[in-house]
């Protein structure tokens, strides 16, 4: 089985596990079992009727915006642990919304590359919408709102907002400007994902920003054997995340999909938990 097929199967399995309560769509109910206290490594709205686990970005904002706490040690610790173990492997292999974006990119159309400048947007969104606003913009009771979920998250609109408003007439009556804004962001994201590979991951995802920073030190990593590499540029040409593995093997943009390793004519690129080791003199 080649790497691309293996990855797609694992993505589908991860999507299925994290959204296993399909029956809840009919009544617009949520799964309320104990699994919901644990975070999903990938972005998956916990207001999706099928969701098994909690969204880590939503959970982080929920704890930080609650009356009791200003910071979530549990969620940040979880993300640090997952990030240092796997880095953006989570994005490439386990994230449900990542799979959705890749399927959208399969729609035949002209494809474009994104300017690197836009990839820095996600760090601003992480700081402002995930860390600052839920803590700083509080009501008289000291409770903040999950600003990223409220104003941006297209995954929440797709998997939570649309199914819930479809199933509950009383929720439909409450829709207004905010819902319109989120639907607009969702439509723009969907359109952008058709033309640009993983547009949301590259520009908007705060979870991708966290894992991207941890990609630099993650145990699961990418290495290039400099002696075997013939600098043909095939790996950089293949990479849909616009990374050149030979110059930036641990780039914050690399989602560890393995397409570069599969394309290398000299098998000079490898991904794994163990290292090739330090330089032999």
């Amino acid at each position: 089985m080649n790497n691309a097929v293996k990855r797609k199967l694992i993505q589908i399995a991860a999507f299925g596990f994290t959204n296993s309560h399909i029956g809840n769509f009919a009544g617009g109910k949520l799964y309320t079992g104990k699994w919901k206290q644990f975070c999903n490594p990938g972005l998956n709205c916990y207001s999706c009727p099928a969701a098994t686990l909690a969204c880590p970005i939503g959970a982080m904002q929920a704890v930080a915006g609650s009356m009791q706490y200003n910071f979530s040690f549990y969620v940040v610790g979880f993300l640090l642990a997952v990030g240092v173990l796997l880095g953006r492997f989570v994005c490439g292999w386990l994230c449900p919304f990542g799979l959705v974006q890749e399927l959208l990119y399969k729609i035949p159309s002209r494809k474009y590359r994104l300017r690197k400048l836009f990839t820095y947007m996600k760090y601003g969104i992480l700081v402002v919408f995930v860390f600052v606003l839920p803590i700083a913009a509080t009501n008289y009771m000291g409770m903040g709102k999950p600003a990223f979920c409220q104003y941006i998250c297209p995954s929440g609109t797709l998997f939570g907002g649309i199914p819930m408003t479809a199933a509950h007439p009383e929720l439909r009556t409450a829709t207004g400007f905010l819902f319109g804004l989120k639907i607009s962001i969702l439509i723009l994201t969907i359109l952008a994902c058709v033309f640009i590979f993983r547009f949301f991951c590259k520009t908007l995802c705060p979870l991708g920003a966290i894992y991207g920073l941890l990609n630099k030190i993650s145990i699961y990593h990418l290495e290039v054997d400099r002696q075997s590499c013939i600098k043909c540029g095939q790996c950089a040409h293949t990479c849909k995340m616009d990374v050149d593995p030979t110059t930036a093997p641990n780039s914050a943009e690399c989602i560890r999909c393995g397409a570069c390793a599969a394309s290398c004519p000299k098998q000079a690129i490898r991904l794994g938990f163990t290292s090739l080791g330090p330089v032999q003199k």
Partner: peptide, 10 residues
């Protein structure tokens, strides 16, 4: 996570 998050759904 077990209650509908009104912010999340817009």
């Amino acid at each position: 996570a077990v209650n509908i998050c009104l912010e999340c759904i817009g």
